Simulated assay, not measured.
Amino acid sequence: DLLLAHEIAADLNWDWLAERDALFGVLKHRLAQAMAGTLDEPGVPARDRVRIGAILAELGDPRPGVGTLPPAMVELPGGTLVLGSTPEQADAARRAWEQYWLQQGNKDQAKSARRWPDDEINDHPVTLAPFAIGRYPVTNAQYAVFIAAGGYDPAAPWWDAAGRAWLARDDDATEGLRSWQRRQRKDQPEAWDDEAFGHGRGNYPVVGVNWYEAMAFGRWLTASLNDGLVYRLPSEAEWEYAARRQTRRNYPWGA
């Protein structure tokens, strides 16, 4: 019903409707809130979640910590976990990837897939202190605040020496760089102007940023919010703990 209501209103044009009756502005806001609420319902198919997310990029995503700062955080108690895979999980991954590449007609990749899962096998525990992780990826709308605050100023304190060196580097004149390492601009993310993923879609995850930009954003956010927290990228162990917990599940949703 929500999707149909938006489809009808969008076909007529929201602005056209609002010009004729101010109640349509209220309806647009309430529709966005109702759509956002459905994203927490496990029974909503993934296809509809994706569609709702794209619509909320147009309507304005009302979820706190998506288009605004501070980001929404989830506190995790920490604890002891074993990273990587069990021998059984590695064997299942080996067989699945081998079959996938054989179906693609790539025997070399299939042969390689028989070996790489062994690198994931591990039985040594790691203990993590309590920490918090973002409920959502950093969005274009949030990153836009960083840009507007002079985020790419090399003199700003959130850039370290390595980051400043990257900002100053002329990628076209630097030998040995791969295509994905060469940036045309260094005052915004690589995909910032992309119609499908860029700043026009505020609630989409920001893409086309590298390590230096991500670290600078975290330092800026720490200084900007000044809420007693240190914002940074999660470690490999923290990321895996957030997704798998101590059960070493295959997927974040538990399967």
Rank of each mutant, 00 (worst) to 15 (best):
D1E: 03
L4T: 13
A5V: 10
H6Q: 04
A10F: 13
D11R: 14
L12A: 13
N13G: 12
N13S: 14
W14Y: 13
W16D: 09
A18E: 15
A18S: 14
E19H: 11
L23Q: 09
G25C: 07
L27S: 10
K28R: 15
K28F: 06
R30K: 14
R30G: 11
A32T: 10
A34L: 11
M35K: 04
D40W: 02
P42C: 09
P42Q: 06
P42W: 10
R47C: 07
R47V: 15
R47E: 14
R49H: 08
R49M: 15
V50R: 10
I55Q: 08
G60Q: 03
D61E: 09
P62D: 08
P70H: 03
A72D: 15
L76H: 08
G78P: 06
L81V: 14
L81C: 11
L83I: 13
L83C: 04
G84D: 04
T86F: 03
A90V: 04
D91N: 12
D91F: 02
A92T: 08
A92Y: 00
R95K: 11
Q99W: 01
Y100H: 13
Q103F: 02
N106D: 15
A110C: 13
K111N: 12
R114W: 03
D119W: 09
D119Q: 02
N122I: 02
D123A: 12
D123V: 04
D123T: 01
H124T: 14
H124A: 15
V126S: 03
I133F: 07
R135G: 00
Y136S: 04
Y136P: 09
Y136C: 02
T139V: 09
T139F: 05
N140Q: 10
Q142P: 01
Q142N: 05
Q142K: 00
A144G: 05
F146C: 06
A148E: 15
A149G: 06
G151I: 01
D153M: 07
P154S: 09
P154Y: 06
P154H: 14
D160A: 12
A161T: 10
A162K: 15
L167F: 08
A168H: 05
D170C: 08
A173N: 11
A173W: 01
S179D: 15
K186H: 10
Q188P: 06
P189S: 11
P189W: 01
E190T: 09
D193R: 14
E195T: 13
E195D: 13
N203Y: 02
P205M: 00
V206L: 04
V209E: 00
E213W: 01
A214L: 03
A216I: 08
A216W: 00
A216V: 07
F217K: 06
F217S: 01
T222N: 14
A223M: 13
A223G: 13
S224W: 05
L225N: 01
G228V: 12
L229T: 06
V230S: 11
L233M: 14
P234C: 00
E236P: 07
E238V: 14
W239N: 00
E240C: 05
A242R: 07
A243H: 07
R244I: 00
R244C: 07
Q246V: 15
T247Q: 14
T247S: 15
N250R: 11
W253P: 01
W253Q: 13
